[in-house]
Computed example of a mutant assay.
Amino acid sequence: MRSVSFQELSKDYLTQLVKGAFLTVKNGKTLNTMTIGWGTIGYIWNKPVLMVPVRLQRYTYNLIDKSDSFTVSVPVEKDLKAALKFCGTESGRDVNKFEALGLTAKPAKSVETPIIGECNLHVECRIIYKQLMEPGTLADDIHEKSYPQHDFHVMVYGEILDAYYTD
């Protein structure tokens, strides 16, 4: 295991994010992961922060709304396209994605939510802020293209507590 600063993390994270990464959240005994392809990494409130958008109607939102942490597991240089597609199209309401795909939930270092063992870049976050999008402040072209059903995201900000590569 090799720890990385959030500045070092940025390149591999942002390069892979457009191809997909796994957002995992645990609330009590309930665990789910979903594919994300959007998000930001930066420095806010004197903290390294990862922001992930989650649509209100997603099963993951029900969990993350009641949780205090999340993890993002990134398959850098690993081919998990099929798993990313499955986790982006199937709901945790209907299927246990870990069982269906044979994904390994491994204990995280700093948060209760586990990481996905098949990935090799991991970010552990403590939730510090959530904000529902304000449709009236969104540029018209983005509103029309990304939200024709008015199914807006909640932006979930997580303080990065740990970031590391595994073998």
Rank of each mutant, 00 (worst) to 15 (best):
V4A: 02
S5H: 01
Q7S: 10
E8T: 03
K11C: 03
D12I: 01
D12K: 04
L14F: 01
L14V: 00
L14W: 01
Q16W: 01
V18G: 00
K19V: 08
L23M: 08
L23Q: 03
T24Y: 05
T24A: 08
L31W: 08
L31C: 04
I36V: 14
G37F: 10
T40I: 04
I41C: 04
G42E: 03
G42I: 00
Y43C: 00
Y43A: 00
I44V: 14
W45R: 09
N46L: 11
N46I: 05
K47T: 10
L50C: 13
R55W: 10
R58N: 03
Y59N: 06
T60N: 04
Y61H: 15
I64C: 01
D65T: 12
S67R: 11
S67V: 04
D68W: 12
T71F: 07
V72G: 01
S73R: 05
S73K: 03
V76I: 07
V76Y: 06
K78D: 10
K78A: 11
K81V: 13
K81M: 12
A82N: 14
L84K: 08
K85W: 13
F86H: 13
F86A: 09
F86P: 11
C87W: 07
T89Q: 14
E90K: 15
G92Y: 06
R93M: 06
D94W: 08
D94M: 09
V95D: 02
N96V: 09
F98L: 04
E99S: 11
E99Y: 05
A100C: 07
L101A: 09
L101F: 07
T104E: 14
K106W: 05
P107R: 12
P107L: 03
A108C: 11
K109H: 11
V111Y: 07
V111F: 11
E112A: 15
T113A: 03
P114E: 10
I115K: 09
G117H: 10
L121G: 05
L121I: 09
H122M: 06
V123Q: 02
V123G: 00
E124K: 02
C125M: 11
R126L: 14
I127M: 04
Y129S: 11
K130G: 08
Q131I: 09
Q131L: 14
L132F: 12
L132S: 13
L132E: 14
M133V: 07
G136W: 07
A139C: 08
A139W: 05
E144R: 15
K145H: 12
Y147T: 04
P148R: 09
Q149E: 15
H150R: 15
H150K: 15
D151F: 08
V154D: 07
V154A: 12
V156E: 01
V156N: 02
D162G: 06
Y165A: 01
Y165G: 00
D167P: 14
